[in-house]
Computed example of a mutant assay.
Amino acid sequence: MARYGTGNPGYVGASSGPSMSRPRGNRFALLGDSITAQHGDAIRRNAKGYFHWAAAYLNQQIRYAVHFATGGYTTEQINTVHLPALLAVKDKWDYCAVLAGTNDVGNAVPVPTIIRNLSKTYKTIIAAGRVPVACTLPPRNGASAFQQGNIMNTNTGIKMLAAKLGIPLVDFHAALVNPTTADYTAGYNADQIHPNSLGARVMGKMFADTMTGIGATAPWRSPLSVAVNDPANFLSNPLFTLDSNSDGVPDRWTVHAASGATFSLEDPAGGEPVAGKWFKCTRATDSGATTTYRVATLAGVQPGDRVAVSLKFKATLEGSPAGKFGLMIFKDKDVNTPLLGLLHDWDRDTQLCTIYGEFLTPVGVTGLQVDCNFSGAGTVWLGQMTFRNLTAAGLNDL
């Protein structure tokens, strides 16, 4: 069986066969159950997804590609249903994070069976020329002594299996557990089993640190505009430097429901790596309504075009009352046709980071609309918003 070692830049083949080169990309697939399903659907990306946090911590040096996850699935079901679907799109990803086994523990599946199933998952991914990332199971509040023992033994087995195969390991259990009780650390969980967005942030930091440690991050940067005049960006005023009427809202944007919000264009603080100005929105109190601001009629796409979207972002949303922010891209003047939700129900303070995503323009779409929806209280900053038509630029295959 081929091995992947952190001290070796590639797989080292078994003595009976040739070695295989490690994928050079930084695209990640995710495989799992409801904890992974919390990342959102094919369009919306929310703060309960640990990988979204990890990518933000690393300024998208690791990129989300796809996930296959279903609530309630055991490791056997994941192998039967999701693993074939994952392999069918193996050209889209380089690594796969596998977080599975929580439901096996809940269903009293024997630990050796769980480990055999996970071994099959990891080895199948390796055989496909990709790198599996083994993840330990999070804590389980209210677990019986039998369940708690199975969690610990399963995690021991995952660690031993990762070492045997020479694949990366992310110890989510260690990041989330209260060492006194073996439950979740207070504030990290939404219920007995699932992390909340704060728990996901903690998981994301550990995932990011681990990927940095094994060299999985690529020398890649999101294709952000860095100049006011960027004709390849079909969003004008990308650096938010133009505000003709001095109302704090940059040219090209309109406010459709202020709901107690204030807007301003703010110079980056000393040392902040942001070109141009921040587009800042603050809601001092929870008015009970939602602030909506938008830029509409972005013409620059045709059906079938692959579009890359990136921006700088930071937020303070954890006050009392807490805020919630979303940034959604729609078909122009049609909020019933969402194309990509880069930030969906985002409800946690976020350091300055880069957000990146891609979508394929569907049939009938030749214009885009960007909506920001902000409820509760807090402050969000947007910068360097960039739309690239990769297909029109001849970059579709990269």
Rank of each mutant, 00 (worst) to 15 (best):
T113C: 03
P362I: 06
G71V: 07
N79S: 13
I329T: 07
Q77C: 00
A175F: 00
T70N: 10
G367H: 09
A56R: 15
W278G: 09
I43M: 06
A56L: 14
A69S: 09
F68V: 07
T70I: 14
P138V: 09
G304Q: 09
M160K: 14
L83D: 10
A143K: 10
L390C: 01
C281G: 01
D94C: 02
N8K: 08
D251Q: 01
G149S: 13
T386L: 04
R130M: 01
V109R: 09
N26S: 10
T80Y: 06
F234W: 06
A175T: 08
L368D: 00
N141Y: 07
K324T: 13
T124C: 00
D41N: 15
P338S: 08
G13A: 05
T262A: 14
I114A: 05
V295I: 12
S16H: 13
V81L: 06
D41M: 08
H67N: 13
G166A: 04
A200T: 03
N59C: 09
A175G: 05
R27I: 04
I114S: 06
H39V: 12
G13K: 08
A65K: 00
V295K: 07
T124H: 00
E76L: 14
N233H: 01
N150M: 12
N229C: 04
A55W: 07
L161G: 08
F146Y: 15
T254N: 06
T316I: 12
Q351I: 07
G260R: 04
L58D: 12
R45H: 15
P18T: 14
L239N: 04
T282A: 00
T291Y: 05
M328I: 14
P250I: 02
V274D: 04
Q192K: 14
P110H: 03
T36V: 15
V301L: 00
A128R: 00
V170W: 01
F263R: 10
E266H: 04
A47S: 14
S34V: 09
L99T: 09
I114K: 06
L343N: 11
S264G: 15
L339K: 07
L224V: 13
A127C: 00
A85P: 09
T350K: 04
V228W: 11
S144K: 10
R306Y: 09
D305Y: 12
K90Q: 14
Q384D: 12
Y184L: 03
R140Y: 14
H344W: 15
